[in-house]
Amino acid sequence: MAAKIQVSTTVNGEQRRFQCEPQQTLLDVLRDELALTGTKEGCATGDCGACSVMLDGRLVDACLVLAAEVQGKKVETIEGMAQGEELHPLQRTFLEHNGSQCGICTPGMLMAARALLERNPDPSETEVRYWLAGNLCRCTGYDKIIRSVLAAAKEMRGA
């Protein structure tokens, strides 16, 4: 067994230290070492997007990032999306439009949608659909997810 690697990183603004094996992914560590189980595993091969998180401002699949790579970087997960009791507008519109059905894809969808709206505050329906094409959902047919994202975009633009 290879020696464990000491990693120091920032998760949702908090300084965190953990030890990991060389082959462990960021997803493994978030869930099993840091108890941040909001990030979900649907495939572990980068095909479903359920583990979407932000790494130094870039949207990534946590299952495709080695845990050791996050040394000195900034990780953002679903647990950091709401400000205390105050939900992010996307979280609110997902509730109001029922964009979350079973809820397993929801954290990843929300992280991906937030990354979209940070780049493009006024996306078309087609742009939302293509941006979220890496996030699988089996429960909704995507209709209510797309409506939730468009509603949040509108609200955030103050339109």
Partner: peptide, 21 residues
């Protein structure tokens, strides 16, 4: 109306099959 289990689902707090330790 908004479902009672919704808030936990959009904040990552809902406990799914693999989330219990």
């Amino acid at each position: 109306p908004v479902k009672p289990d919704g808030r936990d689902k959009v904040t990552g707090r809902a406990k799914f099959g693999a989330d219990l330790a």
